[in-house]
Design a protein around this nucleic acid. Structure first.
Lengths: 193, 193
DNA sequence: TCAATTCTTGATCGAACGCTCCAGATAGTG
DNA sequence: CACTATCTGGAGCGTTCGATCAAGAATTGA
């Protein structure tokens, strides 16, 4: 009983993610965003309420992408070290540089908006815990299969590896040599015992 | 033979660092900056040329602070693990949260401006290498004193620890539990062998 | 077919942006 | 005491910001 929306919300969010990833929250203008999505400002505000609303929706979608990546890794039946190595390496030379790599929108959100937008804080915490949870499961499973020493504490090791993961992204942004980054990933994996 | 400048450039840069740290590059307006420094826009532009010029000067100054912190650690005669532990812990609960903590301007610059301002890229790389270099020296010295195993490769271990350091800052921003952060720092130190 | 409802489009709002200009203030020099 | 050189700070430049709104287009139920 009314006109149908001409653009797809999911596609719009993917485009918005890209713009926010490129320019950050403050650096992305509503004109940039509407232009990238291919709609007018009116449609943007009708669909997402505000620039902040669009940002939160894009960030939420990004978190879903992260979850898909970690769950896919979790479902793998390869050796746990191999899987973890793949995740760490993707953090700085990934085949999916936009979502899991140094451009990760969540990392940007952490440095740009942590502590000044409650909803963002909540998403940072939740997404971070979700990734950490998947890592914990992977390590626990690897230990059960005997791929890791029995005296590895899964939650502790998971937190350590996620920290390394974030560090690798940052170091990549700082211009660190890929060879050094790989060596650091290897060092971290060796710590698993 | 002319009127003397009424404000101190160094003090101005400290204030600017604070504003950039708080709001980022895009989020900090020249009015914010001039207001925080306590000068008019004319003075700001006469002294620093542009917002970008002020940002670069502030970032350069921040890098000097980082250098001071790492060199002070380097000069310490405590056990190398104790010194490194102090640096890692300061990254998330530091007595100097502004400069060495999660708010570190360099980390923000990395996520906000890496790859889009050559001068920033250069500073990211240089500052990162400087910190890494100090870590390398610390580890090498600790090894010479027999505090670390002889089969520790100093540059490799240094890169790994700096990566952990950056990761800890990010994890702190994401709302990670201080207890977990400490445990992760400890895990990283245990890797030194 | 037409009224009702929603969406799209583009002009436009007031505010804030980075930045410039200039009159007035303040200093050293002869 | 001029004279000159520099600094200060507020007014204001043109532009862009996030957001709104009216008017037309598209879709559905009656």
């Amino acid at each position: 009983m009314a006109r149908t929306r001409e653009f797809d919300t999911d596609t719009a969010l993917e485009r918005a993610m890209e713009v926010f990833r490129e320019h950050g929250y403050e650096g992305a203008s509503t004109r940039d965003l509407a232009g990238a999505i291919g709609i007018g400002p009116g449609s943007l505000y009708a669909a997402f309420g505000s620039k902040d609303g669009l940002y939160l929706a894009a960030l939420r979608r990004h978190c879903e992408h992260l979850d898909v990546t970690t769950r896919r890794a979790l479902a793998s039946d390869l050796d746990v070290r191999t899987v973890l190595r793949g995740l760490l390496e993707q953090a700085f030379k990934g085949s999916d540089p936009a979502n899991w790599g140094p451009g990760c929108l969540l990392l940007r959100a952490a440095t740009e908006r942590a502590g000044r937008a409650p909803e963002v804080d909540r998403m940072l915490r939740d997404a971070s815990r979700a990734v950490e949870g998947s890592f914990t499961e992977m390590i626990a499973a690897g230990r059960r299969r005997g791929e890791l020493s029995a005296d590895v504490d899964a939650p502790t090791a998971a937190h350590f590896l996620v920290t390394t993961l974030q560090g690798l992204r940052v170091m990549a942004l700082m211009g660190s040599d890929p060879r050094s980054l790989s060596a650091t990933a290897e060092t971290a994996l060796r710590c698993l015992g």
